[in-house]
C-alpha cells in the first residue's frame, strides 16, 4: 500500500474510533438518564430529536417523553430535528470535565465564547433548558473523552 493510502486509512480508523467514543458517551448519557427519574420527570413533555454536530459530524439524539430512545450517527438529510447544538470536539471535551473552565461550563457558555452554535427551534430548547442541560451534563466527569 502506498504511504498516502496508509495515512488515509489510519485517519479513517482514527475518525471511526473517535466517532465510536462519541457514540459511547451519548449511550452513557442514555444509561444514566434511565437511572435518573427526576430528569425523566422534568423532560416528560420532551419528545424531540436533537442534532449534536461535532466538528461537522452529525449525531441525532431522539427523545421520547424525557428518555433517549436512539442515538444515531449522521449524516442524514432525512432526519428532522427540533434544534441543533453545533460545537467542536475540544470544546465538548472541556464541557464534559468535572469542573470546566469558564465558558465551557454551560451550553450557552459555549455559544457566548464562540465555541458553539444553536440552530432551529431555540424556544423549544429554552422551554426544556433545565432538562436538556442536565441531560448533556450527565457525561460530566468522563474526562477520557478525547478530541
Amino acid at each position: 500500500m502506498a504511504p498516502v493510502q496508509l495515512i488515509v486509512a489510519a485517519m479513517v480508523q482514527l475518525t471511526n474510533a473517535w466517532e465510536a467514543r462519541v457514540i459511547d458517551t451519548f449511550k452513557q448519557i442514555q444509561t444514566r438518564l434511565e437511572a435518573t427519574p427526576h430528569l425523566q420527570r422534568l423532560g416528560r413533555l420532551f419528545s424531540e430529536t436533537v442534532l449534536i454536530e461535532i466538528d461537522g459530524t452529525e449525531f441525532y439524539l431522539s427523545f421520547e417523553k424525557g428518555r433517549i430512545v436512539s442515538v444515531v450517527e449522521g449524516p442524514s438529510r432525512k432526519t428532522p430535528w427540533r434544534f441543533a447544538l453545533r460545537t467542536d470536539a475540544e470544546a465538548l471535551q472541556k464541557f464534559w470535565q468535572a469542573r470546566p473552565e469558564p465558558g465551557f461550563h454551560d451550553v450557552f457558555g459555549l455559544v457566548k465564547i464562540g465555541r458553539g452554535r444553536i440552530d432551529g427551534d431555540i424556544l423549544s430548547l429554552v422551554k426544556n433548558l433545565l432538562f436538556f442541560k442536565d441531560v448533556l451534563g450527565l457525561a460530566r466527569g468522563k474526562e477520557e473523552f478525547a478530541a
Binding site: 469542573r99 457558555g109 429554552v126 433548558l129 433545565l130 442541560k133
Partner: peptide, 19 residues
C-alpha cells in the same frame, strides 16, 4: 405557554460556577 421561572432559572444557571 411556558413557565418563565423555570426558564429563567435554566438560563441563569449558565452563570453559576461549577465550584
Amino acid at each position: 405557554d411556558a413557565h418563565g421561572g423555570e426558564m429563567g432559572a435554566a438560563l441563569v444557571s449558565a452563570n453559576i460556577s461549577p465550584y
